[in-house]
Amino acid sequence: MYTLELKVNGRAYKVEVKATTTLLQVLREKLGITGPKVGCETGDCGACSVLVNGKLVKACITNALTVHGKEVLTVEGLGRPGAFHPLQLAFHEHYAAQCGFCTPGMLMAAKALLDENPKPTRDEVKEALSGNLCRCTGYVKIVDAIMAAAGEKA
C-alpha cells in the first residue's frame, strides 16, 4: 500500500491505496464522494469526469498515485445549493439534465471548457463534450445551457 495525499474540493486527504487504484475508487470508495459515477471503467463514457489541477480527466482511468499532491475538483466542489456555479444553474434552467447520471461529469467538462475558452462557439462546446456520453438528451439542451452560461459569465 502507498500513501496518497491529495486535495479534493479544497479539503486535504490522506489515504492508503494500491499501485493500481484509480482516482475514481479513491473518491467514491475511500472518501464517499459519489458525484463522479462509475459508467464504463474504460474512459469511454465520461460519467466520472473531474478536474485535476484544473484539467479535465476521466477518474476511472486515472491512476490515483499520479494525483499525489494535486487538487481535484468534483461536482460537489463546483457549487452548492445557495451558491451554485452559473453552469449548474444554466443546466437546471435549460433542462440539460434528464436522468442526471452523466450530469456531474458533463458539468466538469463544461467548466474545463469555459475556464480555457470563456466564449466558445456551439461547435467548440460540442467538441469539448465529445468525451462525455449522454443517452437521454441528444445533447441539444446541454449545449444550450453551456452557451447560456458562457453568456452570463461575460
Binding site: G39, C40, T42, D44, C45, R122, V125, K126, E127, L129, S130, G131, N132, L133, C134, R135, G138, Y139, V140, I142, V143
Partner: peptide, 17 residues
C-alpha cells in the same frame, strides 16, 4: 465489449435539432 466498441452518438454526431 466496451463503450469504445459499441459506439453511440457523441455531442459532435447529433446535429442541430
Amino acid at each position: 465489449e466496451t463503450f469504445g466498441d459499441y459506439v453511440i452518438p457523441t455531442a459532435m454526431d447529433v446535429p442541430d435539432i
